[in-house]
């Protein structure tokens, strides 16, 4: 398993644990032990799971197992793949902080945080599609 795949999959597992912890807090609100502001984490819970865990796990396995781009460059552009990893995770982490903060405290700084996180995640998704497209082939 190549190093970048290990990074993708291990990071995905951390996000899975984080998503389940956030979900636990959301479920426990009714018991009265979790503060009301925790509700602001609802969109983050879903995206930690679907982007941080599901999409990231898929990205790591695709990098590893899809047909080779070429003998010299089996994964396509390694730089683009590194950019996918860093943009996806920087974007998602920034979102996990900025989106609930914007709900609770809508100042311009958090607005820019959310906007930049959107741009980073979108860049990661598009770079993944572009870099994977030519590896979807017969052999």
């Amino acid at each position: 398993m190549p190093p970048l795949t290990r990074w993708f999959i291990k990071t995905a597992m951390v996000y899975l644990a984080a998503a389940l912890l956030v979900g636990l807090g959301l479920a426990a609100r009714g018991l009265g032990y979790v503060p009301a502001w925790w509700t602001a984490l609802s969109p983050v819970y879903f995206h930690l799971f679907m982007v941080g865990w599901v999409a990231q796990l898929i990205f790591g396995v695709v990098y590893w197992m899809f047909p080779k781009y070429s003998q010299a460059h089996p994964h396509g552009s390694e730089r683009a793949w590194l950019a996918v990893y860093w943009c996806l995770n920087a974007g998602l982490l920034l979102r996990a902080v900025a989106e609930p903060m914007l709900t609770l405290w809508p100042v311009v700084g958090w607005r820019w945080g959310v906007a930049v996180s959107a741009l980073l995640q979108w860049t990661a998704g598009l770079l993944f599609v572009v870099n994977t497209w030519s590896r979807v082939k017969e052999r």
Partner: peptide, 14 residues
């Protein structure tokens, strides 16, 4: 899907 998601998240900010 990511493009729409990016637009919606950006729309939350601005």
């Amino acid at each position: 899907g990511f493009t729409i998601g990016g637009l919606l998240l950006g729309h939350k900010a601005f």
